[in-house]
């Protein structure tokens, strides 16, 4: 895969039973930019990511990365689910979790290589969690847990990074570390998608925004997406914070 391939979402729709979760989404996601996916609760932000990766069935549409469907190239993808999806009492240490990022690259019936251990160690160092490597994950704070998951994503050597609500329940330091690494990944030519719902100050960290409310409202450069018109379409009249809206 050429390193600078883009993701194309073409007429994507998702229904669960009676509910239309996403309607006719068309998008192009390019490497090198930090992309924020925004919208109100229930707008289908997480669903969009899961549908793109083939983690849930889509009703219509296709998602390609380069010439082929993205769902067939998951070895290129690092995905960090919402914190609420994880059972944090699971008997695993920080090291166990980061090594999970190496499972697919290692392959069936093989042991983790020295290279894999090296990558996991570097990733933990990068998120400033190396000293916690032998701690049970349940003994960490929410922010530390999120940084461990970021380390797992880094250890995957992916070209596409998807983070679902990574800022929920994390401390200031973690938020800074996350944004710092997201920017570095984007600068290194990766595709970086972050689902978020916080419209506060941190929105200025994103280069590109995708604004959703079951259908696509706007996508593109931040200044272009953040208009009063778009926000009203996405959030209805119920939005208090317009500080960054043009």
């Amino acid at each position: 895969m050429a390193p600078l391939a883009k993701i194309t979402v073409d007429h994507l729709s998702v229904r669960y039973r009676e509910v239309q979760a996403l309607r006719n989404i068309n998008l192009t996601l390019r490497p090198g930019k930090l992309i924020g996916i925004f919208g109100p609760n229930g707008a289908g932000k997480s669903t969009l990511i899961k549908a793109m990766l083939g983690l849930m069935p889509v009703t219509t549409g296709r998602v390609t990365y380069g010439p082929r469907p993205l769902a067939q190239q998951l070895a290129q993808v690092a995905y960090v689910p919402q914190r609420s999806q994880i059972d944090w009492t699971f008997p695993a240490t920080v090291w166990d979790v980061v090594m999970m990022g190496r499972v697919n690259k290692t392959g069936w019936l093989h042991r983790f290589s020295t290279v894999s251990r090296r990558l996991a160690q570097d990733a933990l160092e990068r998120v400033d969690m190396l000293e916690f490597r032998d701690r049970p994950i349940g003994a960490l704070s929410g922010g530390q847990q999120q940084r461990v998951f970021l380390a797992r994503a880094l250890a995957q050597e992916a070209t596409i990074f998807c983070f679902d609500e990574p800022f929920v329940g994390v401390d200031q330091k973690t938020e800074a570390v996350l944004f710092q690494i997201f920017r570095e990944l984007a600068a290194a030519g990766k595709i970086v998608m972050v689902v978020n719902h916080d419209l506060g100050e941190s929105i200025t960290n994103f280069d590109q925004l995708v604004l959703l409310n079951k259908e696509l409202i706007a996508a593109g450069p931040r200044e272009w997406v953040l208009t009063r018109d778009h926000m009203t379409q996405a959030y209805g009249g119920h939005i208090g914070f317009f500080g960054h809206v043009a």
Binding site: K50, Y79, P81
Partner: peptide, 19 residues
């Protein structure tokens, strides 16, 4: 072991990594 550990801890993450 390593595949089942990943899957039982984080099924979505495991699926998204291509397992």
């Amino acid at each position: 072991y390593k595949e089942l550990l990943f899957y039982s801890f984080d099924p979505l993450g495991a699926q998204a990594s291509g397992l």
